[in-house]
Write a protein that binds this DNA or RNA. Structure first.
Length: 818
RNA sequence: GGGGCGGUGGCGAAAUGGCAGACGCAGCGGACUUAAAAUCCGCCGGGGUAACCCCCGUGUGGGUUCGACUCCCACCCGCCCUACCA
């Protein structure tokens, strides 16, 4: 064993223990049914090239929590891997002529080293890399399973397309308010393509149920909004010629106020119903709408546009003849792509009717409004206030009952039925990209889309490809890849050249960690039976409506496939905040405010960097980095180093000093334990600093016994072990304790020892502090009240009067109200 | 427009409805040093007072309460998400 110098040299200590940990397999994590399990998972990184401080901020507190759970007696699984497919690798290939595979795996190698420098307890034998064929074989297998269980389908669909790069883009590659291409800044447009989809909407209702998981309110709200459930009714209108037009409405009670209809420009009925006189105008409008970028179309405050088709529909409830318009504020992708327009009670319809001079008929009378008030100046949209008018037999029905009453009536009349709509769309997973898992489908002229048999998986990405400056996938031009035979008939057929969205890879990685080398299953069922589901997931909020919905969908689908028996992949979730630059802004190279962890580790050591990251703010909040602020944790680690090595010699030991230090020690254990449970790492470290301060005072006066000092030092090391794993390991060994401090059990506190002997009784008069009295702990309310009333200040203030009221807060405070 | 989160010393931040500012950084004064760094001791929200102490103070204005950073209502500011979803 190396002899450590007296001077704390973090590089020396950290290198020594990282090697020792690896050699001894300290962090191997295997099934052990004698212990309760705890699956701790932190979101896996994309191998962009360098581990940045954000990775450290996401991973080191997670690691500390996992270490804490381990010391608490759990058998902890804490794996790590790489989400290794994706666009940046391909961009690097195009820009710098490096193969995406080479670029990606070189980055992974580099980042593995950087990850090791954190000293986290990752079990590297469980590492999973999504771009590795042994991984994407199973991604492809899952695609087939989804198809088999009727959760995948192919359809023609409009996708985001960058006209400059001549390629489609993933949703996440469309940036900013103006929805521009990530690479060239060109606004995206829509393009119709045959695409593969997963039926996330099959689980829309179940995805809204968070009752079995402990997730942050914020995420639940975001997912709920994203799924966007609305209830109402489907109602069938007919054109004058008798063509049915189905619409969805959340306000069937306003049917009598429907004075026109609007179809989405792409609606299939438009061609059929458009009158000859309007044909040119309709065609022009439809062409213009097609060319519009999403941003143009989706900007809410944009003035309404539309054209009349020349056709009329009959309102089924009152047989009114109403015009049919097309307008791009009606989306083909929601509901049926057609609406009944009720301008009196819908803001959008009101704006449209006002602009085009369409009739506005009030059918819900706002309380306090009368005919004398003239025409409506804005839509009245309340669902709860008002009374139905101009609605035939329903006149007088309160608006609050209107929806239910009218829906029941519509059903009885056969005009419509109760309906639920979701904003959630099916998940489009096709990507016209090379660097992703190929979709395992072959197109046969005779048999159509045929899944590739299991024994031919994985469909390997060919290495010998040439990248187009346009970004077009080289798979489309790779003869060897493209040409194959139909699994059904053996005749020549073509491979699907699209690859899968990388979110597909990351939707099931928590399962792959269980047996990353398993060639028989996506994951070993025995490992799964023990470890699943994930107990604690941690990661950034930015995945709230993407990854975190996809992975929930995936687990629900896996339940349908009979692969798992749980419905939720992650039982608890915690979102960390973000480390900002010193200027309080998001870190970016162009701002020059990037904090590089490698430099920090070289200067301060990983233990200090970890401690600072966990100390400077509550974890879910984050905040600006501060190079001066790290000095606090640096001093803490240094002080621990010195105190743990000190040959402590007691001088004038007193019982009182012994009790005081033991009390502080046990109080600190209690506090740090609670704080770790609650992810309140900053206050845990503050408490450890308080203990340090108390120990330094005791050391100066040397008035505590040697065993009391030793208990304080050992407790300090154990409490700090999850935060600063290297230095505590070294000191633990130096103090002659066994290997490893990380296998030692978490310290216990003794309530009796931790109990305060005296309290400061706060005496208030009318809520203002007027006196403080030191009293022994455990006095009764009556005794405290008597003491407070006897206080000189109170006697003086009362001046012989008796107080109106005296409030005693047990063991804390007396408030005298006069 | 809708939703969410937040606003506390010079700075990062703490506070089950009960002493606001724990802990840390910076700063100031002192010790050590030829000197500096490091380290150690002390002070450290604002105002008043010789002092004991007093007054003010958690974005703003109200409210509930014996008592409000904390709960309720309205508003201002910042950040994030979402956005014509019928």
């Amino acid at each position: 064993m190396l002899i450590m110098s007296d001077v704390y040299n973090p590089q020396e200590v950290e290198a020594k223990w990282q090697t020792k940990w690896q050699e001894s397999g300290l962090y191997r994590q295997t099934v052990d049914k004698s212990k309760p399990k705890h699956y701790a998972l932190t979101m896996l990184p994309y191998p962009s090239g360098d581990l940045h401080i954000g990775h450290w901020y996401a991973m080191t507190p997670s690691d500390a929590r996992a270490r804490f759970m381990r010391m608490k007696g759990y058998n902890v699984l804490f794996p790590m891997g790489f989400d290794a497919f994706g666009l940046p690798a391909e961009n690097a290939a195009i820009k710098r002529n490096i193969h995406p595979k080479k670029w990606t795996f070189a980055n992974i190698e580099r980042m593995r080293g950087q990850l090791r420098s954190m000293g986290a307890m990752f079990d590297w034998e469980r590492e999973a890399v999504s771009a590795d064929p042994s991984y994407y074989k199973w991604t492809q297998w899952f695609f087939k399973k989804l198809l088999e269980y009727d959760l995948a389908y192919r359809k023609l669909s409009a996708v985001d397309f960058c006209p400059n790069c001549n390629t489609t883009l993933a949703r996440e590659q469309v940036w900013g308010d103006d929805r521009h291409c990530e690479r060239c800044g060109t606004p995206v447009i829509k393009k119709d393509l045959e695409q593969w989809f997963f039926k996330t909407t099959d689980y829309a209702e179940e995805l809204l149920d968070f009752s079995t998981i402990d997730w942050p309110e914020r995420v639940k709200v975001m997912q709920t909004n994203w799924i966007g459930r609305s209830t109402g009714a489907n109602v069938t209108f007919h054109t004058e010629q008798g063509d049915p037009i189905e619409i969805f409405t959340t306000r069937p009670d306003t049917l009598w106020g429907a004075t026109f209809m609007v179809l989405a420009p792409e609606h299939p009925l438009v061609d059929k119903i458009t009158a000859v006189a309007q044909a040119d105008a309709v065609l022009t409008y439809r062409e213009a709408a097609k060319r519009l970028t999403d941003i143009d179309r989706e900007t809410a405050d944009r003035e309404k546009t539309g054209v009349f088709t020349g056709a009329y529909a009959i309102n089924p409830v009152n047989n009114a003849r109403i015009p049919i318009w097309i307008a791009d504020y009606v989306l083909m992708t929601y509901g049926s792509g057609a609406i009944m327009a009720v301008p009196a009670h819908d803001e959008r319809d009101f704006a449209f009717a006002t602009k085009f001079g369409l009739e506005i008929v009030e059918v819900i009378r706002q309380p306090g409004r009368s005919d004398e008030d003239g025409p409506l100046t804005e839509a009245f949209v309340s669902k709860t206030e008002g009374t139905m008018i101009n609605s035939g037999a329903f006149d007088g029905t309160p608006a609050s009952e209107g929806v239910a009453t009218v829906t029941a009536w519509l059903e009885a009349q056969g005009m419509g039925e109760k309906a639920v709509n979701y904003r959630l769309r099916d998940w489009l997973i096709s990507r016209q990209r090379y660097w992703g898992a190929p979709i395992p489908i072959v197109y046969c002229p005779e048999h159509g889309a045929v899944p590739v048999p299991d024994d031919q998986l994985p469909i390997m990405l060919p290495d010998d490809v040439e990248f187009m400056p346009t970004g077009e996938s080289p798979l489309r031009f790779h003869e060897g890849f493209l040409h194959t035979t139909c699994p059904e008939c053996g005749k020549p057929a073509l491979r699907e050249t699209d690859t899968m969205d990388t979110f597909m890879c990351s939707s099931w990685y928590q399962y792959r960690y269980l047996s990353p080398h398993d060639d028989e299953h996506p994951f070993d069922p025995e490992e799964g039976a023990y470890w699943l589901p994930v107990d604690q997931y941690t990661g950034g909020i930015e995945h709230a409506t993407m990854h975190l919905i996809y992975t929930r969908f995936f687990t629900m689908a896996m339940r349908k496939m009979g692969l798992v028996d749980h419905s939720e992949p992650m039982l608890a979730l915690y979102n960390q905040g973000m480390v900002l630059g010193e200027d309080g802004e998001k870190m970016s190279k162009s701002r020059g405010n990037v904090v590089a962890p490698d430099t920090l580790v070289a200067q301060y050591g990983a233990d200090t960097v970890r401690t600072y990251l966990m100390f400077f703010a509550k974890w879910d909040q984050g905040g600006p980095w501060n190079y001066d602020g790290i000095k606090g944790p640096q001093r803490l680690v240094q002080d621990v180093w010195e105190m743990a090595q000190l040959a402590y010699m007691p001088k004038q030991v007193t019982d009182e000093a012994n009790r005081a230090l033991r009390r502080k020690t046990h109080q600190t254990i209690r506090k740090v334990t609670a704080d770790f449970e609650n992810f309140s790492f900053n206050t845990a470290i503050a408490a450890i600093m308080e203990l340090r301060n108390a120990m330094q005072a005791a050391r100066r006066s040397s008035d505590v016994a040697a065993d009391v000092w030793a208990e304080a030092v050992d407790s300090l090391l154990l409490l700090l072990a999850p935060v600063a794993p290297h230095v505590t390991e070294e000191l633990w060994a130096q103090r002659g304790h066994g290997y490893s401090v990380h296998q030692h059990s978490w310290p216990m506190w003794d309530e009796e020892v931790a109990k305060e002997e005296s309290i400061t009784l706060v005496v208030q008069i009318n809520g203002k502090v007027r006196d403080r009295i030191d009293v022994p702990a455990g006095m009764s309310d009556e005794e405290l009240k008597a003491l407070a009333l006897a206080s000189e200040r109170v006697v003086e203030w009362l001046n012989g009067r008796s107080p109106h009221k005296v409030i005693v807060v047990k063991g804390r405070l007396v408030n005298i109200v006069g």
